[in-house]
């Protein structure tokens, strides 16, 4: 039997918002270490990796590993039925063909349960090699979302260049060109507003704006975002999810023809 109880159902609501435009369906792999999801978008340009650790749940039980094939549009509909402050419990029998979501209002006066059919998804799993990245940039997630939104007005691609001076985001297209440079912040009193850059060697890569704007749907999950880059390997965009886990987006670069 699988049962996971989370006092803050808002976390799951935000997780769904963070993946539902990029993925249509995905397999939630449940084990005693937690819930993991790995899926590529339909065009195989990006990969989403979600990890929610069992010790981040208020109650967690997983007697046997369980893979739940979920239609994300359906799950989004169910999550919309939950209040932000509701307590959420996910429940499924072993090798079940459905999963039940229960939502309890904080004062326990309203108890709802929704049963959703599961799908048989034979999704291929990719091996993500451990990488020591040349550049690791941490910046406010709202700032990154703003940069991706603004630059996508100028062109389909963004060039992200990281040097020891700072990180530069550039775009060019029919109306002209745009450059946004962020320097490392000196001493900021609020950690969440810092821009920090760890650079082993400078890197410059080109990415499609469309996917970056999908990734920034995860902004409500974390005040900071971490970008990891190395020459000719996918960009990693990581948002921490409270104390329970993280969501990582991998984006293949655009390369010279």
């Amino acid at each position: 039997m699988f049962e996971a109880r989370l006092v803050q159902s808002s976390i799951f609501k935000k997780v769904l918002e963070a993946i539902k435009e990029l993925l249509n369906e995905a397999t939630f792999d449940c084990s005693d270490s937690g819930i993991q999801l790995q899926a590529m978008d339909s065009s195989h340009v990006s990969l989403v990796s979600l990890n929610l650790r069992s010790d981040g749940f208020d109650q967690y039980r997983c007697d046997r590993n369980l893979s739940m094939g979920i239609n994300l549009a359906s799950m989004t509909k169910i999550m919309k039925c939950a209040g932000n402050d509701d307590i959420m419990t996910m429940k499924a029998q072993d090798n079940a063909d459905s999963v039940t979501f229960m939502f309890e209002s904080p004062n326990q006066e309203k108890m709802s349960d929704y049963e959703m059919k599961l799908m048989n998804l034979d999704q291929e799993h990719l091996g993500i090699p451990e990488t020591d990245y040349s550049c690791v940039i941490k910046l406010p997630s709202a700032e990154f979302a703003r940069i991706c939104r603004d630059l996508s007005q100028f062109g389909e691609s963004v060039v992200i260049s990281c040097t020891k001076e700072g990180v530069k985001f550039s775009a060019a297209g029919d109306i002209g060109s745009a450059n946004i440079k962020l320097a490392q912040t000196a001493n900021v009193d609020k950690e969440d507003e810092a821009v920090s850059i760890e650079m082993q060697e400078k890197v410059s890569l080109t990415f499609a704006c469309r996917y970056l704007n999908y990734f920034t749907k995860a902004t409500p999950l974390s005040p900071q975002v971490c970008l990891s880059m190395s020459a000719e390997v996918p960009l990693v965009v990581e948002y921490k999810i409270g104390e329970i886990g993280h969501i990582r987006y991998y984006l293949a670069p655009k390369i010279e023809e």
Binding site: V45, L47, H125, I128, Y250, L251, A252, K254, E256
Partner: peptide, 13 residues
Amino acid sequence: MAQSSIKSFFPTR
């Protein structure tokens, strides 16, 4: 610039 596929970087397990 051509868009590459994520599968060309991460082998299928």
